[in-house]
């Protein structure tokens, strides 16, 4: 346990250089990109001296190196600064949107894991049958479908044709914004105040976006789980368990799946970054008021500080998830010692 604590601290310390490298890249790319916050603020037809004035006010007229060092120093003090386009603290803008994204990505991940792992294990067990081929086909197809197209199709089918699920936003019009003052995590908030009709409304809104996200990524996990399961099912201890008269279902879903789950878990940590990328697209498709959509909006506006702030938060989120994955890893596999 002491080693685990040490490991966690080391990992957390390692995220610091990671964030700085990432931040430097984003900083440079943003400034190389055409356009800047001033032109999005004032439009293309503002007089030269007004533009100059604004650039000076935002500090954009200073040498790039100075801007860079100033920004890093600011981040070191844990200050994300102020938006260059709106009168708004960056931290406030992010905190408002963060819970929506966390809710969406965690639900998406759960769906991905559940679908992917279960279908993959089932396919491995029923190897070379029609069901196995069907599941493998499913894996390839969903893997190839772009997230936004999947989103549009689900909106069309369940929102328009069948008309059973809402297609946009986090809540319906009848739920008051004041419901969500405690944490900003809508599911948590409605449970805290025991407003179950609001909870139902929120879950309905959550279904399509999280299923979209979950389906697309489940393809990789179906294939990964299937391959790992096939390996594990060949292992000696599986035959040995069979020889002791343990039921087949127990062997497949307890003995084999637990072993196959280890590489799946690793993959999950790695895929989480992809999930965040998918979230940006999903949020846009479903008008989901999260960080992904905020990021997209602010990229259009070239709002440098907000973009950089969001990137930091996403990076930290990904790092956190992969740390949690490593800890679960150590819990599942007794051979792993940190």
């Amino acid at each position: 346990m002491k080693n685990l604590a040490k490991y966690i601290v080391t990992r957390l310390l390692l995220t610091i250089p990671m964030v700085f490298i990432l931040l430097s890249i984003v900083f440079i790319v943003l400034r190389v990109m055409p356009g800047d916050p001033v032109s999005s603020l004032l439009g293309g037809h503002a007089p030269e001296h007004v533009i100059e004035q604004k650039r000076e006010a935002l500090g954009l007229n200073r040498p790039l190196a100075v801007q860079y060092v100033n920004y890093l120093w600011q981040i070191c003090r844990l200050d994300f600064g102020e938006s260059m386009v709106f009168k708004q603290r960056v931290s406030k803008a992010i905190l408002e949107k963060l819970p929506a994204t966390v809710e969406l990505t965690l639900c998406g991940m759960l769906i991905t894991l559940f679908l992917g792992v279960f279908l993959g294990a089932y396919a491995a067990d029923k190897r070379r049958t029609a069901r196995d081929y069907g599941i493998r086909l499913y894996g390839i197809v969903v893997y190839c479908i772009p997230v936004y197209w999947m989103g549009l199709m689900l909106q069309l089918i369940f929102g328009i044709w069948l008309d059973i699920l809402p297609i946009a936003g986090r809540t319906g019009p009848r739920v008051f914004a004041s419901t969500f003052e405690k944490t900003g995590f809508y599911i948590l908030d409605t449970i805290l105040i025991r407003d179950f009709s609001a909870l139902l409304d929120i879950l309905q809104h959550l279904i399509l976006p999280s299923v979209t996200l979950g389906l697309v990524l489940s393809g990789i996990f179906v294939r990964l789980t299937r391959t790992n399961m096939l390996d594990v099912l060949r292992a000696d201890y599986i035959v040995a368990a069979e020889a002791r008269g343990i039921r087949h279902r127990v062997i497949v879903y307890k003995h084999a799946l637990k072993n196959a789950f280890i590489p799946i878990l690793t993959m999950m940590g790695l895929q989480f970054a992809l999930l965040m990328a998918g979230a940006v697209l999903t949020e846009t498709t479903f008008s989901w008021p999260g960080m992904g959509r905020l990021l997209l909006e602010r990229i259009y506006l070239r709002d440098y500080p907000t973009i950089q702030g969001i990137i930091i938060v996403i990076a930290l989120f990904v790092a956190l998830v992969s740390l949690v994955v490593d800890i679960i890893y150590a819990i599942i596999d007794p051979r792993v010692r940190y």
Partner: peptide, 29 residues
């Protein structure tokens, strides 16, 4: 299997599930 006829295998290193404790093997059986 197990109750009337038991079988042991070539490689004891790989015949036990690495993720389960010894008692779990016995209790399950």
């Amino acid at each position: 299997r197990g109750k009337r006829i038991a079988m042991i295998f070539q490689d004891p290193l790989t015949s036990l599930n690495p993720l389960f404790r010894i008692d779990q093997h016995f209790i399950e059986t």
